[in-house]
Amino acid sequence: MTMLVYGLITGVLFGFLLQKGRVLRYDRQLGALRLLDMTIVKFMFSTVVVGMVGVYLLKDFGLAKLSVKPTLLGANILGGLIFGIGWGLLGYCPGTSAGALGEGRWDAVWGILGMLVGAALYAEAFPFMKKTVLTWGDLGKLTLPDALGVSPWVIIPVFAVAAVGLFTWFEKKGL
């Protein structure tokens, strides 16, 4: 029960910030996919840079564990490509469809209904996927620091500097 309350509070805060950042809209999502409007990329990378520092600090102090999903090359690449086609058509992703509906963009309802159907279809296809795609290129639970054999505290500053460089370039180009 407590977890449900935490989930709701966390979602309200995140949804509030997503709306404030104006990243929930179809126009913004398609703008990012068409490389015309980088608002979403700015938002996302800002979250990632702040989040990665905090989460790795928590990990180093033994206050939290990472949640690393297995790298399955076949499923990640194929799934990513399929997701991208759908995202381009819909213009919302799973989380932002709920947020878009919250700010009145009710075409997100079609997105939510379609995503329920997509999830149901995947549940049907899962036994087949498990025997095929999900066995292709299984690298296990892998992180970038593991793969490169360096400390996360080497990757984090490099990523942060790269993000700031990218942000500077976006602002110069007016993206």
Partner: peptide
Amino acid sequence: GAVVAMFGARL
């Protein structure tokens, strides 16, 4: 688009 996107996301 949503059907396709969610199928890909779960895969």
